[in-house]
Computed example of a mutant assay.
Amino acid sequence: MKEKVTSKFEELYGPGAVLFASPGRINLIGEHTDYNGGFVFPGAVDRGIVAAIRLNGTDRVRAHALDLGQTAEFGLSEADKPAQSWACYLFGVCREIQKRGGKIGGFDTVFAGDVPLGAGMSSSAALESTYAYALDDLFSLGIDKFELARIGQATEHNYCGVNCGIMDQFASVFGKKGCLMRLDCRSMEFEYFPFDPEGYKLVLLDSRVKHELVGSPYNDRRASCERVAKMLGQEFLRGATMEQLDAIKDKISEEDYKRARYVIGEERRVLDVCAALEKGDYETVGKRMYETHWGMSRDYEVSCEELDFLVGVAEECGVAGSRIMGGGFGGCTINLVRDDVYDRFIATAKEKFAARYGHEPAVYEVVISDGSRRL
């Protein structure tokens, strides 16, 4: 990717670019908890975005998305928002830095990525983190890493139409090789947990069903949680118990009840997984992953037939843990697989999925890697 991006940059804009990269992420457990003030447990992966960037001394940005073969040019004031959706990510990052008092100018850039699009691995957060980190570096702005993550999150909210939590951008900026991170999304405190599952592999199976998070499905669920939290007299669902939820069951809709039941259970599961990892107990980690999946499928209703099918295959093959990963409505399952069942699981999943849906799932082994950086 570095060579591809540099070569295209020189062809379009000449020499002198600096390279930056940010990763996509997996989330072992803790899904749809971030905007509820709860815990998430992500890690950065060895796939991401690489960008070549050179300041151009003007107030214009000239950008080329290599994978799409598209170019955009835009200014840095609010009225200059570009038409292309991918360019809105870059524009949003520029604007959010400016809103925080950062003095930036124009630049030329080419970027490419190897995060599978629509797989729930947060290619958009990798893109935002790359440019937030790069502009901070190139303009010597001195923005702290949490603020870089918030800039990416605000870009999603204000320029891309997704009212997301902070997890994806946090994982992309703060990633550390060989470690997962437990982030408290209320206090913003975080802790690294070594993740070295000897005798197990972490692998994603991509259903290749693409999900689109813009619009109602994601925002509807967030609104459900906010209604229940308000009814409980809390800002977030974080810390609520099932006893408290059951006490107001007759005052809320069945749908809101189910959404909140999932989130309250998920907070407990994240803490259980952290405790299990400290003991090297990967079988408990796997059990909690299955519980998360069926909670997301039945209570939160963000799964789909293809993902439920893949998790069912994992259960049949004796896989330690499997669940939908990401916002939902397609994308990947994340699987914790013992080495002795790995080959059989992958072969069975491919064969059965293709027989049912007409194509094989894509398989991505995961390596936990570093966060945003200058290359």
Rank of each mutant, 00 (worst) to 15 (best):
K2W: 04
V5D: 08
K8G: 01
E10F: 11
E10L: 13
A21L: 06
P23C: 07
R25V: 05
L28I: 15
G30H: 06
E31F: 09
Y35N: 01
Y35K: 02
G38S: 10
F39K: 01
V40K: 06
F41W: 05
F41M: 11
A51M: 11
T58R: 14
T58N: 08
V61G: 05
R62F: 13
H64E: 10
L66R: 09
L68E: 01
L68D: 07
F74P: 08
A79F: 07
P82K: 05
Q84V: 00
Y89M: 04
F91E: 09
G92Y: 07
C94M: 01
I97S: 09
I104C: 03
G105R: 13
L117V: 15
G118R: 03
M121F: 14
S124A: 01
A126Y: 08
S129V: 03
T130Q: 09
Y133G: 09
A134Y: 01
L135I: 12
F139W: 14
I143S: 05
L148T: 06
Y159A: 08
V162H: 06
F170N: 03
K177P: 01
R186L: 12
F190C: 02
Y192V: 02
P194I: 10
K201G: 12
K201A: 14
L205E: 14
L205T: 13
D206T: 11
R208K: 15
L213C: 03
R221P: 03
C225Q: 06
V228H: 06
V228T: 09
M231Y: 00
E235R: 15
E235T: 12
F236R: 09
G239I: 12
A247S: 15
E254G: 04
E255N: 08
Y262G: 05
V263W: 00
E266Q: 00
E267D: 07
V273R: 01
A275W: 00
E283S: 13
V285H: 10
R288M: 15
M289F: 13
M289W: 11
E291A: 15
E301S: 09
V302N: 06
E306W: 00
V311G: 02
V313D: 04
I324L: 15
I324M: 15
I324D: 03
G326Y: 11
D343W: 07
F345T: 05
A347Y: 00
A349Y: 04
K352A: 08
A355V: 00
G358M: 04
Y364M: 11
Y364I: 13
R373H: 10
R374I: 12
